[in-house]
Simulated assay, not measured.
Amino acid sequence: MNFRRRLPDDELEINLIPLIDVLLVILIFLAATTSFTRYQQMKVSLPEARADALAEPEALNIAISQEGLYALEGRLLPGTTAADIAQALAAAAEGRPDAVLVINADAHSTHESVLRVMEAARQAGISRVNFATRSPR
Rank of each mutant, 00 (worst) to 15 (best):
residue 54 L to Y: 05
residue 39 Y to Q: 03
residue 48 E to K: 12
residue 18 P to V: 03
residue 69 L to V: 06
residue 89 L to F: 07
residue 55 A to K: 14
residue 97 P to Y: 05
residue 92 A to L: 01
residue 52 D to V: 14
residue 49 A to R: 10
residue 119 E to G: 06
residue 102 V to M: 12
residue 83 A to Q: 12
residue 55 A to N: 11
residue 19 L to H: 08
residue 26 I to E: 02
residue 87 Q to M: 14
residue 32 A to K: 02
residue 74 G to Y: 04
residue 121 A to I: 08
residue 127 S to G: 10
residue 114 V to S: 13
residue 134 R to E: 13
residue 68 G to V: 00
residue 60 L to H: 03
residue 51 A to D: 11
residue 89 L to M: 07
residue 22 V to K: 05
residue 99 A to D: 08
residue 106 D to S: 06
residue 58 E to H: 10
residue 120 A to R: 03
residue 47 P to I: 01
residue 33 T to K: 05
residue 77 L to Y: 02
residue 54 L to P: 01
residue 39 Y to C: 00
residue 24 L to M: 05
residue 103 I to G: 04
residue 118 M to N: 11
residue 10 D to G: 13
residue 94 E to F: 08
residue 48 E to Q: 15
residue 22 V to F: 09
residue 117 V to Y: 02
residue 18 P to T: 00
residue 44 V to W: 08
residue 123 Q to F: 03
residue 68 G to L: 01
residue 117 V to S: 02
residue 128 R to V: 15
residue 2 N to V: 10
residue 16 L to Q: 06
residue 79 G to S: 07
residue 29 F to P: 00
residue 51 A to Q: 15
residue 131 F to Y: 15
residue 17 I to K: 09
residue 127 S to V: 15
residue 65 S to E: 08
residue 5 R to T: 12
residue 60 L to R: 05
residue 110 T to G: 10
residue 109 S to R: 03
residue 52 D to F: 07
residue 90 A to V: 02
residue 100 V to A: 08
residue 78 P to E: 10
residue 65 S to I: 03
residue 82 A to P: 13
residue 10 D to F: 13
residue 126 I to R: 01
residue 91 A to K: 10
residue 6 R to A: 11
residue 119 E to I: 11
residue 30 L to Q: 00
residue 42 M to C: 07
residue 36 F to Q: 12
residue 97 P to R: 10
residue 131 F to L: 11
residue 88 A to S: 04
residue 68 G to T: 01
residue 113 S to V: 04
residue 124 A to P: 07
residue 83 A to W: 02
residue 83 A to I: 05
residue 82 A to K: 09
residue 111 H to A: 04
residue 82 A to H: 05
residue 69 L to A: 12
residue 56 E to L: 14
residue 80 T to M: 07
residue 110 T to D: 08
residue 81 T to F: 01
residue 30 L to R: 02
residue 2 N to P: 14
residue 42 M to V: 13
residue 67 E to D: 10
residue 118 M to E: 11
residue 113 S to K: 09
residue 48 E to W: 08
residue 52 D to G: 07
residue 50 R to D: 15
residue 5 R to V: 11
residue 46 L to I: 04
residue 135 S to Y: 07
residue 34 T to E: 09
residue 75 R to V: 15
residue 81 T to A: 07
residue 37 T to W: 15
residue 47 P to M: 00
residue 75 R to Q: 14
residue 75 R to A: 15
residue 40 Q to P: 03
residue 39 Y to W: 03
residue 16 L to N: 05
residue 94 E to N: 10
residue 99 A to W: 07
residue 55 A to Q: 14
residue 124 A to M: 07
residue 25 V to N: 01
residue 31 A to D: 12
residue 109 S to T: 13
residue 27 L to V: 15
residue 88 A to W: 00
residue 31 A to K: 09
residue 63 A to M: 08
residue 18 P to G: 03
residue 19 L to D: 07
residue 85 I to T: 04
residue 26 I to K: 04
residue 36 F to N: 14
residue 105 A to H: 06
residue 105 A to F: 01
residue 29 F to V: 13
residue 100 V to H: 07
residue 125 G to Y: 04
